[in-house]
């Protein structure tokens, strides 16, 4: 599906939701940046709309780009060759402040382990997450000082700093 068509379609569901649309890296896959509040409605449309049928959340990746925490959904259809990259973002107030996004696990259940991981490593809380009998919520010891995958994370506060740059300067 063409980029402009996708933007039109998504905006027709939640007006003004699309912040930016472009290509993802050099891959040529359409990447759509949307308002994080509307992600649940958009996700429902992407999964159930006959033009998309993006029923497989292949990957959920959280990235910190210039202090903004970005959640990237890599979507794929199991029935058509369609793929899409969906992104939402938020700016955390401080290094130990949690960010809140709606959970898409009610639409794509395979998001649960990814969301569990992001909660601990990035301090992103996903609201409305479905329960799951796979529990990967205890990756870390108790860290009371930030989240390890954020750039602001201070290793000296954990008591054991990692070797930087593999020993060679």
């Amino acid at each position: 599906m063409d980029k402009n068509q996708i933007v039109l379609k998504l905006n027709s569901i939640c007006s003004g939701t699309v912040l930016e649309a472009g290509e993802f890296g050099r891959s040529g896959v359409v990447s759509v940046w949307i308002e994080s509040k509307t992600v649940l409605q958009i996700a429902e449309c992407l999964k159930n709309d006959l033009e998309f049928q993006l029923d497989w959340l292949e990957n959920l990746s959280v990235v910190e780009l210039e202090e903004v925490v970005v959640v990237t959904y890599f979507l794929r259809s199991t029935t058509t060759p369609e793929t899409l990259v969906l992104r939402i973002s938020a700016l955390p107030g401080s290094k130990s402040e949690k960010i809140v996004f709606p959970s898409v696990s009610s639409i794509w259940p395979m998001a649960i382990p990814f969301e569990n991981e992001a909660e601990q490593l990035f301090g992103v809380t996903f609201i409305g997450k479905e329960s799951c009998e796979l529990n990967n919520k205890f990756l870390l010891p108790d860290l009371s000082h930030g989240f390890p995958l954020r750039k602001s994370f201070d290793f000296s506060s954990t008591g054991s700093a990692p070797i930087q740059n593999g020993g060679h300067s």
């Binding site: 990957n59 990746s61 990235v63 780009l65 395979m110 649960i112 382990p113 796979l134 995958l149």
Partner: peptide, 27 residues
């Protein structure tokens, strides 16, 4: 998923592994 900010170190490296989905099927 690799993100580079043009520096000497990677900005972010994230792996999508098949085993998480397989583990989810166990229950």
């Amino acid at each position: 998923h690799v993100v580079s900010d043009g520096k000497l170190k990677p900005g972010r490296v994230q792996y999508r592994v098949p085993s998480l989905a397989n583990l989810m099927a166990v229950p």
